[in-house]
Design a protein around this nucleic acid. Sequence first.
DNA 1: GAACGTACCTACCTTTTGGTAAGTACCCGA
DNA 2: TCGGGTACTTACCAAAAGGTAGGTACGTTC
Lengths: 123, 123
Amino acid sequence: MSTTPPITLLPGFPDGSFDPTCPTRVVLDHVTSKWGVLVLVALDDRTLRWGELRRAVQGVSEKMLAQTLRTLEADGFVRRESFDVIPPHVEYSLTPLGDGLVAHLLPLLRWVSDHATAIVDAS
Amino acid sequence: MSTTPPITLLPGFPDGSFDPTCPTRVVLDHVTSKWGVLVLVALDDRTLRWGELRRAVQGVSEKMLAQTLRTLEADGFVRRESFDVIPPHVEYSLTPLGDGLVAHLLPLLRWVSDHATAIVDAS
DNA sequence: GAACGTACCTACCTTTTGGTAAGTACCCGA
DNA sequence: TCGGGTACTTACCAAAAGGTAGGTACGTTC
């Protein structure tokens, strides 16, 4: 009660999701990075090659796609399978962990997609 | 079939959520901005004052909190109520639209929170 | 009367993010 | 042999994001 009131953390998240050093923050930043959501949702229920991903996630640069994929792969959301053939062939898909994440991202993106026009028009 | 194959857009999102100029992208960027998710979830089911929000969303600077709140208010997710008293008193809460959004953000944050430690440890 | 709390805003500077363009290595079709 | 397609990486630069520190205005408390 003396310096800063110890009252306000966050109900329902007693584990410290709101602590800046918490792993939740790190993972949340990866997922909600500029291209994270789009790449993950693009891979929902299907396997795509590098070039297909680029065309699916319109506007992403090669550099950003590579960086995003590396992060998501390191987190265990995306599986990269490389076939050692002469014109390179690489396939990207979701891991079971990625499936679990995307199950929550899809309804979110759907909701945003449904309301976006009204929201932008109003502001 | 001639230049770039017209095959790959995104199934389930024929409206153009993956077009860089689409409103969905704009709103998604606001919501998934560094502090957007945290601020929105902090306001779930309760009204907070400026100072309470700062303490709740640990690590946010005043500048960023103000900027985030202005964006979310302009989008119609957050309501700002200012009482014209001499020590300033301002309350922030979710609008019905904000409620709808947070309904999807909560399970996402819960999932991330539940898996974050394992994910970070593995990478 | 000095400090503190309220809710901000502004200028300045640094850090991070992201885009562009080029390069790599190999093969295939024209 | 020239260009195109495959899947990237790297260097360089611009833009955006974000932090710090200060200021504002007023009243209450010490």
